[in-house]
Every structure is written in C-alpha cells, then in structure tokens.
Design a protein around this nucleic acid. Sequence first.
RNA 1: GAGCCGUUAGCUCAGUCGGUAGAGCACCUGCCUUUUAAGCAGGGCGUCGUGGGUUCGAGUCCCACACGGCUCACCA
Length: 488
Amino acid sequence: MSDLDQRGQRIAKLAQLRAAGVDPYPPRCQRSHTAAEALAAFEQAAEGQEVRVCVAGRLISQRLMGKTTFAHLADGSGRIQVMARQDLIGEAAYQAFKELDLADFINVNGKLFRTRTGEVTVLVDSFQLLAKALRPLPEKWHGLRDTETRYRQRYLDLIANEEVRHIFLTRTRIISAIRRFLDARGFIEVETPILQPLYGGAAAQPFTTHHNALDQTLYLRIADELYLKRLIIGGFERVYEIGHNFRNEGISTRHNPEFTAIELYQAYADYNDIMALLEELYAEVAQEVLGSSVLQYQGQLIDLTPPWRRISMRQAILDASGIDILEADTYDKLAAATQAHGLNLGKPANWGKLVEKLFEETVEPSLVQPTYITEFPLDISPLAKKTPADPMFVERFEFFIAGMECGNAFTELNDPLDQRERFQATQQDFKSGEDEAHPLDEDFIIAMEHGMPPTGGLGWGIDRMVMLFTDQASIREVILFPQLRSRD
RNA sequence: GAGCCGUUAGCUCAGUCGGUAGAGCACCUGCCUUUUAAGCAGGGCGUCGUGGGUUCGAGUCCCACACGGCUCACCA
C-alpha cells in the first residue's frame, strides 16, 4: 500500500469523523498531568488511593486484543501506557478508540493502576481526539535511519530517535549553562546587527543581500567582533553575544554555512584572564550538563579540568617538526625549511599564513587534551595586540580539543593608528592573492579613536562545543536543520 | 570543486551469474478482556533516485544527471 493509500485511508476516516460530528482538530484540550507527572503521582500515592489523571500525547503504539486495547502515548516528558476496555467505556467509544491511528494526538481521562506486568497505566474512562495525523510514523524499533530524511524532516528524527532528542536537549542545557556562568560574572548579553553594511571580525566570504528601500548592499555578519568592541568603547565592561554567523564557504562535518558563535569581551582584562575564564567555563558547564569534567569523545577521554596546557605556537611547531620559526623568520627561509622537511604547504600569501599551515599540518591533529596555543604571527592577526617582547607576534590564543580548533581569543588591539595600519596591511595581502580584499572599517577605527580600554576578547563555536559534549562526529548532528541542497 | 560509497514498499533492509521484485514493521480483513517488538489466520503493497544506452530480456551491466554520506580541497 503506497503512502498515498495510507494517507487516503486516513483522509477518508477524517471525513467519517466529521460526518459523525467529531471535530478532529478541536481548539483546546484538558490536561492534568504530563506522562512523567502521572507516573510520579502514582508512585507517591498511598496504597489503595485512587489517582485520576488526564494525559495528552501522540499515539505511538497500539495493541488490540479483542475487547481490550493497550496503547502508549508520548508527550514532551516521556510516555505512558493507556488501556481501554469495551466493558468499561461501551461499544461505541471502544470502537472509536480502536479506529485511532498511530501518530494521532489524543487525550485520555482515567485512573491509574498497575498492570500484571507492573507497568503503571491509565485505565480509560473517556478519551478525545486532539489532532488527526494523516501520515504514518517511521518504523517502531529500527527508528529512522536515512540520514537525508533525518535532516530534511527533523521532526520525524525527533519522534523516532530518542538519542537525537537527547542531543538537542543537551545543546539547550549547554547554552543556558554558559549564560548562567557569564551572567553570574557580570557579563551582559547584547544583540548586534546581523545585517551589516560592512562585514569584518574574521577572514571569511560573506553572504550578500540587498535592502530595497535603502537600495543598499548588506552582508550577513561573519563575526560579532567589531560591534561588540564598539560597546566596550561605549562603556559596557563585560558583554557577550550568542548568535548566528554566516560564512559563504564549503560545507563539511565541521562547517555549516550558518553556525552559532559566542563572543565575549571583558574590559581591563588580557588574554591570560580570558584563558582562566574559558577553562573554568568549560569545566563548569561540563560538570553541570554531564555531571563530570571528564568526557568521552569518539573513543578518547578528554579531561576539561583546569588548568589547561599552554604552549606557544613557536614551541609547539618546534617540538613537532624541529623547525624554529624564530630562525626561519622570513617567508623564504620558512618555505625552504618546510620543503627540506618534505612538507608541501602550497603558497600562502605571507609568512604568518605559512606558519599557520605548518602548525595545522604538524601539530593540530595531536592536540587531543584541551590546549591553548599562544602567540600567533602578527600578519594573520589584524585585531590583536602585539607582544611586548616581539612585534612579529601578538597576544592571541586558539584552543584545541580532540584535534579540533574550538575557539580564538586575544588581547584586543586598542591602538587606533596601529589598527588602521593592520587593516591596510591585510588589504595589501589580499590584493596580491585571489581572495577578496578585506574591507577597512572606517567607522570602527573612528570608534577606537575615541579611546578603548585594554580588553580581552574571545569567541568560540557553540556547535563544535556541543559536538564535543554529545560525542558527535558531524556538526549536522547538533544543528536541528543543517544546510542541505534544495531538491528540485 | 574532486574522489569513493550509497539511493529497492510509508519505515528498516535483502535481492545470487542479467531471466516473472522479497522479508519484518506499518497498513487492510477476521479472531482474541493484562499486552508491551502482543499473538494467530488471511490480504497487496513498488516510477527499484531520474534520463539514456547495451541486451531477446536490466533492480542487476555501461553513460549522464540529481540528492545524500565520507574523505580531500576551501575555511584567521
């Protein structure tokens, strides 16, 4: 029987119900208990005390046994069994109960009892159809496996696969734990523009759109950074934003074009303060959400307990490859050194990018336990403050967990003249390469010229954090509706 | 963007060497008053992703395309 046939049968049933005066989509329903509350109420009741409930939910299984029918209802709290008996509700009501279809929403009034096999069950006194379903549910014990259907019709995935539901509940709990952590430390959550006349704060391809009334090109933000710093300049000392960034780039198990990022800025702090804050946050969120600061990711045990390992990029590369970037301190010297080690790193635009490639190739995959990589090359860090000791480097770190780049932070550059030069330098770099020029944000520099306090800033991807906390290998498993190609 | 793999009933899957397309669940009919993957008896599921080609004959072989997955590329 085709899908249309099953759907056709249900539409026919719907017409019969309407003809019999039953509203298959009544506007309101009664409910006294969720499934979980009903079960708890029964357990708490004194022996022999009658517990009457009205529960509501989706019909997910049905066992018709002649004049008795068992079924399970699922609601947001879990599931509960109900039992209908013809001798208790009469032939007409019993017939109507049997004619319910899997996936229909109903509510049920009755008293709770324990069956012979021990399951707490609602003995049906009366029931009401709340919403007729016209299509069947996925198969009941294999669930829904087809990846494409799971992503395109996530509601079916959530209905059929309990562990998927759990992942997204965990995601929500992680995000609210982050908010609690930051709010408790005096951070305020703010909202900055998603539609921006100029994009910045990261080196990424933007999505471009157009505002009709203004007749103006707008970009979907690639980062929050430049707006949040304007707020630091404006006198908010601790701000954060959780929201979507949009990057017009490839899709992979670690990249979705639209992803959730958090950025935070703290005035009168530097990147050392940020490291202390971040490791404390991860450990506390893990403790709160997972009950432990040690977690398992793809077969590896990860210990988030502070303090995390800190190592400079120079030292990490030296340890892994024997190449000292302080000696190979020009593009040509470093290119020669990497070739001598048999590494093919392509032709990046400058020394800093070559350092980064070398790092990604030789160090990154080995960073399983949480690690801060500090002191990045200046020419790939146009928004970070130079290290006092060596102006080729900046006070910046990225942190890595399970071989994955998880986030990025620095002591923020607050020297407006230096900032202008940095923007101009990156534009030079991009002009020589194929990448689009990075726009100089004059308005941002003007803001900084009004004075910006010393500030530490940080950003990380929430999706990758959720992957880590829920042991998922693909970012699509932690985004409710991941980007897929449209079907014709 | 490239390579590899996948796409068969509403769902989960099998389909041998190219020879009339299968199972379980779901669905329909009947029986069944404590089942829970209920059970028993019976029923029919279908554009084998799409379009071409080879062949007497294609789910199966070939080509192209679509969508998905993985890997790579891209990615501060």
